[in-house]
């Protein structure tokens, strides 16, 4: 099953990945990282198909994708 990993310290919660994930896997998390950003979490990991749209969009190169 495909999945993504997120460098939580790099995430600035811009929301691009959440917006472009067609499967609604990702969402803004409750926890904040050291910089104070509520980093993105895979709220619905089972739905991930490994299309990497999130990783394409991420300005922080914070997302890696496995399929």
């Amino acid at each position: 099953m495909a999945y993504v990993t997120i460098l939580t310290e790099s995430c600035k919660s811009c929301g691009y990945c959440v917006k472009f994930c067609a499967k609604h896997v990702l969402a803004v998390g409750k926890q904040v990282n050291k910089q104070g950003y509520p980093y993105i979490v895979a709220e619905n990991p089972a739905a991930c198909i490994g299309c990497a749209m999130c990783a394409q969009m991420c300005p922080e190169a914070a997302i890696e994708v496995y399929r």
Partner: peptide, 9 residues
């Protein structure tokens, strides 16, 4: 399972 997108080095 294969890594299809990784952070550039």
């Amino acid at each position: 399972m294969e890594k299809v997108y990784s952070r550039t080095r």
